[in-house]
Computed example of a mutant assay.
Amino acid sequence: MTRANTRKPLGQVSGEDQSSVPRRLLSHATKLFAKKGFDRTSVQEIVEAAGVTKGAMYHYFGSKDDLLYEIYARVLREQTEQLEKVASSAAPVRERLATAASDVVVSTIANLDDNTIFMQSMHQLGTEKQKAVRAERRKYHERFRTLVEEGQATGEFRGDKPADVIVDFFFGSVHHLGSWYRRSGSLSARQVGDHYSDLLLDALRPPQ
């Protein structure tokens, strides 16, 4: 039987508000992946936790891989939209980069479980999905890098360090958030974001 044959018509999704079904599936998949690991979590466990049928799940997601992919992809889409909005504004480049740097920290913390689970399990995705994720993440980093390069071109940022290295260094710190940040701690997500942003901008200050 093909996967398509398992899908139920949209109107048969257990009487649920249809728009809530993918959100519930993603939410419960995230919790189960965190608790048991991606490879040890079955589709049956996910649909039971979400209170839907397998047919309902396969209407939105073709496989467990698709769930893992979407857990990260939706966060990256939101971050990309926000970055584009900030980067294309008329504000000075230093202000745009500061806002972009703080925003990505805030959104990463808001989706910390999703990001952590994906980073731990990404290697279990199929080759094509891994390539797709890396391509989308590369686009985001490249857009961020254009802000650094713009400031370097005008002399506002130091030009003796390659923009690629600066961006990789910054995002290495962002990806490390899951290992130490705790929501019960003394710093809010925005405070951490602003600290990261200040450190980046200070590092880019031209030498006297």
Rank of each mutant, 00 (worst) to 15 (best):
R96S: 07
L76R: 00
T2E: 09
G193I: 01
K85M: 11
A98D: 06
F61Q: 07
N111I: 10
D17V: 13
M57P: 04
D164I: 10
V75D: 10
G155C: 08
G126N: 15
L68D: 05
F169G: 01
F144V: 03
W180I: 14
Y140Q: 03
K64Q: 08
M119W: 08
Q79K: 08
K8E: 15
G62W: 06
I109N: 00
A189Y: 01
P22Y: 06
Y181N: 07
E136N: 09
K139Q: 11
Q152N: 01
T2L: 07
E45F: 02
H123C: 05
S179T: 09
V93H: 00
H28I: 11
T127V: 14
L10M: 11
M1T: 09
A56L: 03
A91L: 15
L112M: 06
V167K: 02
V167F: 06
R3V: 14
I117L: 05
R145Y: 13
K139I: 14
E128C: 01
A50G: 08
F144K: 06
G11C: 08
R182S: 11
Y140F: 15
Y196S: 00
Q208F: 06
V167H: 01
I166C: 06
T80L: 15
K64G: 00
K8T: 13
V167E: 06
R96G: 03
R7F: 07
A4T: 11
F170Y: 15
Y181F: 15
D113L: 15
P92D: 05
V192T: 01
V105W: 02
E16P: 00
